[in-house]
Design a protein around this nucleic acid. Structure first.
Length: 498
RNA sequence: GGCGCUAUGGUGCAAUGGUUAGCACGCGGCCCUUUCAAGGCUGAAAUACGGGUUCGACUCCCGUUAGCGCUACCA
C-alpha cells in the first residue's frame, strides 16, 4: 500500500539530531556533514533536531555550542531546530496508540529488575536474570513476576516485540538487512513515572521514530552504533502505520589506538579546532574523507566538489582512525591553495582577535598590500593564529626579538656597522623593490668581505626579530622602506650592545 | 555470554574476478635554496590466517582470529 509519500519518490529529507549532553564532537560533526552533503547534493531538506529527552544528562546551555560548531563547519539547516522536550504530547500519543493497537503493553516490573551491559555479564555468571527479551508482563499479567503491584505502582510501556518472523530494512551503506524477530527485546517506549508528579518520559527509540515519521525523514543517516537498534525502530514505524525510511549507517571514528574517539585522544570538540585556527573548509574536506571517498585519487576537494561527488553508496563500512597529522596537512594545503580572496577574511578575523587589525587593510591600496603580504606569508603558516604570532612583525612594529636568533649574530661587531650602512643605502634607493634591495645588500656584503647568505640571515633577524621568515627581499618589500630602514637603524644600535 | 558488523602498508582511501596492488598523510633520501616552509624526484612499507569456487581471487563462499558495535526505564 505505497502512497505518494514513499521515501524514494519524494525529495530527500534528512536530519541531524544531536543530544545536548556534551559538545559537538568529531563523530557528530561527520554525521552532520554527511547529512548536509547528501541534502545539498540531492536538493533535499536538512532538518536539525535537538534530542533532549534525557532530563538528567541534558544541558540546555550546550545547545548553542553545538549550533556554533555546525555553523563554523558550514553545515546549515532548512528546518528547525526542533526540541524533543517540547514535543512530549506526540510521544505520549504514539505510545497510547501502540498500547491501544496491542503493539505495546504495560510493564509493572521495577526498573532495576533487569540489567544490561557489564552488569548483565556479572548477572549471567551468578545465574540470575540477564536481560529483557520477553517481559512477563506482556501477556497482561502485571504481577506475573511475583512483584508487588500496589496501587501506587506506575507502569512503563513496553513494545511487544514479535515472537518470530523477520524484520527487514534497507541500509544504503550496509545493504539489505534482516534480523530475526525473536532477537528483538521488549523495549521500553515510555518510562515509568519517577515520583508522583512526573509523567512517563519517552525513550530514544520512541522519539526518533515518532519524529522521523512526523518530519517525513526519507533517509536516516547516522552513526553505525545505531545499526543494531534499527530493527526495533522499523517495528515501531510499522506499528505506527508509517513507512520506514532508508537508513545509512556511517562507520565509527576511532582514536589512534582504534578505540572509540574520546578526550584522551586529544581534541574531540569541533569548536576546539576552530579555536586552534583550522580553516573550516580544510576541516570539512578532511572529515568528508573519513569513511567516504569520491572514488579516484583526488583528495583536495573543495566544498562544491564534495557536494557534487557525494553519495551514500560510496560510504565505507570500515571504522576509521582520526589522523590529526593529515588534518594539519589539509589545513596547510588550504592555506596555500585557496584563492587569496577566500583566505583574507579568515586572516582578518584572526588579526582582529589579536588586536592587530587596521581598517586601512580593508580596501584600496591597503587591501592590496594586505593581500600580497598574506600571500607571501601563507606557505609557512600552519594555523591561523600564526599570522598574529609568528608573522607579527609584518602587521605591527611591536614584536619580540628571538634571543636565540639574535645571539647568533650579535657577537660579530661588524653587523651593527653593516646594518647602519645598509639602512643608509636602502634609504637612498631610487626604487623600492626586490632587485635593488638584493643588489644593495650583496654589494655591501662583498665590500665587507662577508658571505651574502650570512648578512641576509642577520638582516632577517634584524628586521623581523626571528630567524625564520619569508625570503628576505620579499620581506623587505612587504614591510616597506620606512619600517625596514627604521628597524635596521634600531638594530645597528641595539644589536651589538646587549 | 548472545546477536551483528568489519578486515588492503603505521594512518586515510583506490583497484568491472585478470594492474609490476594505485594515491595521499606520516617516515627516510636526493634536488632546489637566503633561514624555515612549500615544491619536484625518490625509497621503505599492505591484501589478517586457513580452506574452498575459478583457467585466474584483494575481489565470491566457509571457517578461524582480531577489532568494533548493540545487548539501558542513555542517546
Amino acid at each position: 500500500m505505497t502512497n505518494s509519500a514513499h521515501p524514494q519518490s519524494a525529495a530527500p529529507r534528512v536530519r541531524f539530531a544531536p543530544s545536548p549532553t556534551g559538545y559537538l564532537h568529531v563523530g557528530g560533526a561527520r554525521t552532520a556533514l554527511f547529512n548536509w552533503l547528501f541534502a545539498r547534493r540531492q536538493h533535499g531538506t536538512m532538518i536539525l533536531r535537538i534530542e533532549d529527552t534525557d532530563a538528567e544528562r541534558n544541558k540546555p546551555e550546550l545547545v548553542e555550542g553545538i549550533l556554533d560548531g555546525l555553523r563554523w563547519l558550514g553545515v546549515d539547516w532548512d528546518e528547525g531546530p526542533f526540541y524533543q522536550s517540547q514535543r512530549g504530547a506526540l510521544y505520549q500519543d504514539a505510545a497510547q496508540k501502540c498500547l491501544a493497537a496491542g503493539h505495546a503493553f504495560l510493564c509493572y516490573c521495577p526498573a532495576e529488575r533487569y540489567v544490561g551491559g557489564d552488569a548483565a555479564e556479572e548477572g549471567a555468571a551468578a545465574g540470575t536474570v540477564r536481560r529483557v527479551v520477553r517481559c512477563p508482563c506482556r501477556d497482561g499479567l502485571p504481577a506475573a513476576a511475583g512483584k508487588p503491584s500496589s496501587p501506587e505502582t506506575k507502569p512503563a510501556i513496553r513494545f511487544k516485540a514479535p515472537l518470530g518472523g523477520k524484520v527487514e530494512f534497507q541500509d544504503a551503506v550496509f545493504g539489505a538487512r534482516e534480523v530475526a524477530g525473536e532477537e528483538i527485546e521488549d523495549f521500553v517506549l515510555l518510562r515509568s513515572p519517577r515520583g508522583a508528579e512526573t509523567a512517563g518520559l519517552p525513550t530514544y527509540q520512541l522519539c526518533v521514530v515518532v519524529d522521523d515519521a512526523d518530519m517525513r525523514i526519507t533517509h536516516v543517516i547516522r552513526g553505525a552504533d545505531h545499526l543494531s537498534n534499527t530493527p526495533k525502530q522499523v517495528l515501531l514505524y510499522r506499528a505506527l502505520g508509517a513507512e520506514p525510511p532508508i537508513f545509512a549507517h556511517l562507520p565509527l571514528i576511532l582514536g589512534a589506538d582504534r578505540t572509540r574517539l574520546s578526550k584522551r585522544h586529544g581534541a574531540t570538540d569541533v569548536n576546539m579546532y576552530r579555536t586552534e585556527g583550522f580553516l573550516p573548509e580544510a576541516f570539512r574536506n578532511f572529515l568528508s574523507l573519513l569513511g567516504w571517498s569520491a572514488g579516484g585519487d583526488e583528495e583536495f576537494l573543495r566544498t562544491r566538489d564534495l557536494i557534487e561527488k557525494f553519495s551514500l553508496e560510496a560510504v565505507s563500512r570500515t571504522n576509521g582512525v582520526f589522523d590529526r597529522p593529515k588534518l594539519e596537512w589539509f589545513n596547510t594545503q588550504y592555506l596555500q591553495k585557496l584563492p587569496i580572496e577566500d583566505l583574507l577574511p579568515e586572516v582578518a578575523a584572526e588579526l582582529k582577535r589579536s588586536k592587530l587589525w587596521r581598517e586601512e587593510w580593508a580596501s584600496g591600496a591597503g587591501h592590496e598590500w594586505f593581500a600580497r603580504t598574506v600571500d607571501l606569508l601563507r606557505p609557512r603558516i600552519r594555523l591561523l593564529p600564526d599570522f598574529s604570532t609568528w608573522s607579527r612583525a609584518f602587521f605591527s612594529d611591536d614584536f619580540p626579538c628571538d634571543p636565540a636568533a639574535k645571539e647568533k649574530f650579535w657577537k660579530d661587531q661588524r653587523f651593527p656597522r653593516m646594518f647602519a650602512q645598509l639602512a643608509d643605502t636602502l634609504a637612498a634607493l631610487p626604487e623600492w623593490s626586490h632587485d635593488p634591495c638584493d643588489h644593495a645588500l650583496r654589494a655591501l656584503a662583498e665590500a665587507e668581505g662577508v658571505k651574502a647568505g650570512l648578512l641576509i640571515n642577520a638582516t632577517r633577524v634584524a628586521i623581523v626579530g626571528q630567524a625564520v621568515a619569508p625570503p628576505l627581499f620579499d620581506t623587505m618589500v612587504a614591510l616597506g622602506r620606512e619600517r625596514v630602514v627604521a628597524r635596521l637603524r634600531k638594530a645597528a644600535t641595539s644589536f651589538g650592545a646587549a
